[in-house]
Amino acid sequence: MTCILVDDQASARAIIRRLCDSEADLEVIGEFENAIEALRCLNKETVDVAFLDIHMPGFTGFDFMETIRHPLKVVLITSDDQFALESYGYAPVVDYLVKPISPERFAKAVEKIRQQLGPFRKSDVSIPEPRSEQDLFVNIDRRLVKISLNHILFIEAKGDYILVKTDQKDIRVHTTLKSILEKLPEDQFLKIHRSFIINIHSIVDIEDNSVLIGKNVIPISRANRPELLKRINLL
């Protein structure tokens, strides 16, 4: 798990960092003496949890939580217990620690974070941003049928129609490869042959003149092979 520490007092940050260092799966990727700097960090880094002081001059911990848009877990840290009830009105708050924090109490807070994050830690997996373009609606017999782009394996030109091969079914659409290619995200789909567009994420392996997608062998034209090799994460 990755975390940031936000506290305007150096002594508090040093102590919290010390407590973090005692948790093997907790990595501190930044310390900030004000919440504005911490917000900037969230725009650049993948952070699972913030250990956040409430009392900071200007922009408080509560202000910070009202501003964040990231799915961040927050452990509030303060010298007062009077804000405990208020703090739980904020969705990101997992726990509330009163200074000076005992190592045992800190460990309990970290365990709560582990339970809430489960296996889906932002720092461990890349979760794609929800995008409306991830679906494509095609006209089939006067019905607009939704196709999830992530389910498309490849698309084949078949004379006056195209065949959209998904991992669940084949869909026949009266259009051209050129037309559908314009509607597909460039980073995911590539035309590798005059009759084939493939979903790059579905490739199983690549040989000299073909790619394997599912159980289908798709030809690659010599002219398109260099572009395909550029687009894959090649070791």
Partner: peptide, 24 residues
């Protein structure tokens, strides 16, 4: 009051519990 709050933290770190209550 803001600085009293910060100082209260240090009073707690240095083990003065009655002092911490007075600071509050």
């Amino acid at each position: 009051r803001g600085f009293a709050h910060k100082l209260k933290h240090k009073i707690g770190i240095l083990g003065m519990q009655a002092g911490h209550r007075l600071a509050a």
